[in-house]
Amino acid sequence: MTTPECCGTLTSDTLSAPDAAELARTLKALADPARLRLISLVASHDGAEACVCDLVEPLGLSQPTVSHHLKVLVDAGLLTRDKRGVWAYYALVPGALEAVAGALASPVADPR
């Protein structure tokens, strides 16, 4: 079967269905202003790690709401959670944000 002249041909790899689903899940987790601020707050702390107690006041949200947003980011693979005594500490997953940026910068995401 030949490709009609009006149709273009693929010149690079495309995003697979499983990869697209995973990227969409990650982007959905990031598509919230509070979660974006949490990523920024964690990244700006010493060692890119912050206690949940340090994240509540800057966001102006209740502790349960902040914890919910942090859980979404952990489930999306963007943050790790380390329980120490009664406090939970969150850190960026090395390379996670770069992987998202790389997926968005690939030719697949180029609208041209």
Rank of each mutant, 00 (worst) to 15 (best):
T14Y: 00
T14D: 09
A20P: 10
A21Y: 09
A21G: 05
A21S: 11
A24T: 10
A24R: 11
A24L: 13
T26E: 12
L27F: 01
K28D: 15
A29Y: 12
A29K: 08
A29L: 12
A29D: 08
L30C: 15
D32A: 14
P33Q: 13
P33R: 11
A34L: 14
A34G: 14
A34T: 14
R35H: 08
L38G: 07
S40M: 12
S40C: 15
L41V: 09
L41H: 00
A43S: 14
H45L: 00
H45K: 07
D46Y: 05
D46E: 11
G47K: 01
A50M: 02
C51H: 01
L55R: 06
L55D: 12
E57A: 12
E57M: 07
L59Q: 02
L59T: 00
L61R: 13
L61N: 06
S62K: 00
Q63R: 07
T65N: 10
V66A: 07
V66G: 10
H68N: 12
H69P: 10
K71E: 06
K71S: 15
K71P: 01
V72C: 08
L73R: 10
A76K: 08
G77P: 03
G77F: 02
R81T: 11
D82N: 07
Y90C: 06
Y90H: 01
A91S: 07
A91M: 03
P94Y: 02
P94E: 12
G95M: 05
A96R: 02
L97A: 05
